[in-house]
Design a protein around this nucleic acid. Structure first.
Length: 450
RNA sequence: GCGUCUGUAGCUCAGUUGGUUAGAGCGCUGGAUUGUGGCUCCGGAGGUCGCAGGUUCGAGUCCUGUUAGACGCCCCA
């Protein structure tokens, strides 16, 4: 009976190449968050169950979280999301924090769900939240960041669409325009959320049932579900003040040249804690069309902690769907040849050369260079082959001759050229080479810009 | 919780109507070459054919169950 080789269901093993891809994504996220003045925080991996129960249904928390009882009898949960935690943190310093507070984190979460395309049990998310701005500029900033977070990696407007809606407008349509009660509204929102997933006939049938077969209401519903812009809405909705925030936001985004932002009357984002504008970023890759991530305004949560309420807008891109977006649009660099140290020392003589290699490695490392040593004692060709495969930039051969002469043989893997360098000049040799590399990199960069 | 598809070497796969000891390429590893990489040649390791039952003289192959994975549904904070 041997141990299993596979990782736990819904989790991923990240080998160096995978990790390089993750680092690439996270580093880009940090650049954009920082560029907008957001500061990084971190919350605990575990939270008491109550913090989620207030917001999500008890059912969801019980069935879809990893939870356990600690030794003190407390019901604890591995965080399934960041919003309650950061809300708690901000609420705890409600009086002393200067507003607006712009905060971000990149963290992992766990949900006990069936893994499928784009969904894992353990996943990482960038959480961006701005606290303390009650006007539309908060949403504007969040959507701009969502755009830039993709644009930073080379995404262009044709690769994705940002769909925007307003919870208050949806409520108006459900209650005032259609005259639905709470239950009907809830069912209708759920139904609209799945509109694109079902055949039209199925939708019509379900809608008719919710509306009690009232043909007048069905006609009114049909008049709104297929509109593409705010202006296409029936006059009694279009001319109501409830459309003002969306109109304002869309106008501002248009002025900024964000051509791929559209109004979507069917966008629902579940119906948890959002109180105003909601939006979703859609991948338009033909083989990958679906919602990547979303966000919106949630003004009601801070107050749940018993402090003066605060308006909040946020967005949370997930690594899983983000990675697939980059792959689908050919935006992920190839990291398969970018791991490994710069310099590999190959001792190819007696055991003396192993000791000498260790000393040389120590000296170079002391000067800030990345160095590894092949201690296998294999023949020179095997050592060379392994080092090249590991993407070493330079090889230092230390054999009996080098030891005797105190001169090292250095090979540039890229060019195949070799130099004989006195042992005492090794460090300055490599720094001169690094300078050359930097210069040529700068030249390339200048060349690109021209 | 429900459904569909897929499990043969580390990877990609072959394996005839059920028939001896289960194969190939790549990868890994050693040698040809007691001191130099991407070629070439020769060797080696690595498989209870996902697991368990059943049918059969005989099962990688057929049947049943089960498990794991992928993808959908439900859900998606």
């Amino acid at each position: 009976m041997s141990l299993k080789l596979t990782s736990y269901k819904g989790t991923r093993d990240l080998y160096p190449v995978d990790m390089a891809e993750r680092r690439y994504i996270f580093d880009g996220w940090r650049v954009i968050a920082t560029r907008y003045g957001y500061k990084e925080y971190m919350a605990p991996l575990l939270e008491p169950v109550e913090i989620y129960a207030a917001k999500s249904g008890a059912e969801i928390v019980n069935e879809q979280t990893y939870s356990f009882t600690d030794r003190g009898g407390r019901q604890m949960v591995i965080r399934p999301e960041m919003t309650p935690s950061i809300t708690r943190m901000v609420a705890a310093r409600r009086q002393e924090m200067s507003m607006p507070a712009r905060l971000y984190s990149i963290a992992n979460f766990m949900r006990y769900e069936r893994p499928q395309h784009g969904r894992e049990r353990e996943f990482w998310q960038l959480n961006l939240d701005v606290f303390g701005i009650d006007n539309i500029y908060a949403e504007l900033e969040i959507i701009n960041m969502s755009w830039d977070v993709l644009g930073y990696f080379g995404a262009t407007a044709d690769m994705f669409t940002i769909r925007v809606n307003d919870r208050r407008l949806t409520d108006f349509i459900m209650r005032d325009y259609l005259g639905l009660n709470d239950d009907q509204t809830m069912c209708m929102i759920k139904l609209l959320d799945r509109y694109d997933k079902m055949p039209r006939a199925t939708f019509d049938e379900a809608a008719s049932e919710i509306l009690g077969g009232d043909q007048g209401l069905i006609d009114r519903l049909n008049a709104v579900i297929s509109v593409e812009t705010l202006d296409d809405l029936p006059a009694e909705i279009r001319d109501n003040q409830v459309t003002a925030p969306l109109r304002d936001l869309l106008g501002k985004l248009q002025l900024q040249g964000l051509t791929n932002v559209v109004y979507s009357v069917r966008l629902m984002r579940g119906f948890d804690y959002y109180t105003g504008i909601v939006f979703e970023v859609f991948d338009e890759a033909p083989e990958n069309r679906r919602a990547m991530f979303g966000g919106g305004r949630y003004d009601g949560l801070v107050g749940l902690f018993g402090v003066e309420p605060l308006p909040v807008a946020g967005v949370a891109p997930g690594e899983t769907t983000f990675r697939e977006f980059l792959l689908a649009h050919n935006l992920m660099p190839d990291f398969s040849d970018s791991c490994g140290p710069n310099i590999t020392i190959l001792p190819i003589g007696g055991s003396d050369t192993l000791d000498a290699a260790t000393d040389v490695a120590d000296e170079l490392r002391g000067s800030g260079l990345n160095v590894t040593v092949d201690y296998t004692g294999r023949k020179a060709d095997k050592q060379t082959k392994a080092a090249v495969k590991n993407k070493a930039g330079w090889l230092i051969y230390i054999g009996d001759d080098e030891l005797a002469d105190e001169v090292m043989t250095i090979k540039n893997v890229g060019t195949g050229k070799q130099d004989k360098v006195p042992a005492v000049e090794l460090v300055s040799y490599f720094y001169a080479k690094l300078d050359e590399q930097l210069d040529s990199l700068l030249m390339d960069k200048v060349g690109e810009e021209e």
